[in-house]
């Protein structure tokens, strides 16, 4: 087992995944590193990857034209960044930036999409895991939207 596969195996996102599936996924994975302030991706760019963050802090930002970028969420070790690679038109909807030096594993979305088309079982396994991430993010977003600490008039 090479280092990458070991890292993937021990990541909670891939917990319980079959070894042969993990091997396929590892084939699409590379180690990446971003320095503080680096953009990991920008809104509108083609979404070709997703990231398992191993170290550091990443911001999801939206930048209105007339003001400072709005940080909507921060992601850290153990978090998954990005699912736009999974859904058409495969474009990022926000900017992602390294708030501190960040190490991650990048997974090639185009490569994975292709493999999932051929191996539906792998596809279903991945979708299940992403659904959980998406749904938890949605829950958090709802709570965030409620602005529960706001002054009430």
């Amino acid at each position: 087992m090479d280092t990458l596969q070991r890292i993937l195996t021990s990541h909670p996102f891939f917990e319980g995944m079959w070894a042969d599936h993990l091997q396929i996924i590892t084939g699409c994975a590379t180690n990446v590193r971003f320095e503080e302030g680096d953009y990991i991706f920008r809104q509108g760019e083609e979404a070709n990857h997703f990231y398992l963050i191993r170290q550091g802090k990443v911001t999801k930002e939206i930048s209105p034209p007339q003001s400072e970028p709005l940080i909507v969420q921060t992601l850290e070790e153990g978090d998954i960044l990005g699912w736009s690679w999974l859904v058409p038109p495969y474009q990022w909807r926000y900017d992602a930036r390294a708030l501190t030096m960040t190490r991650a594993i990048a997974l090639d979305g185009a490569c994975l999409r292709n493999k999932c088309e051929h191996d539906r079982e792998l596809g279903y396994e991945l979708l299940k895991r992403f659904s959980l991430t998406v749904s938890r993010t949605l829950d958090a977003t709802i709570l965030q939207l409620m602005d529960v600490y706001a002054a009430i008039d």
């Binding site: 940080i71 969420q73 921060t74 850290e76 153990g78 501190t100 965030q144």
Partner: peptide
């Protein structure tokens, strides 16, 4: 410590407090 809405200069967590539980 996390905040629902970030401001310039904030380098801590952004997001709801419940997201901290899993960490």
């Amino acid at each position: 410590v996390t905040v629902d809405r970030s401001q310039a200069g904030w380098r801590g967590h952004v997001g709801v407090v419940t997201r901290l539980i899993s960490r």
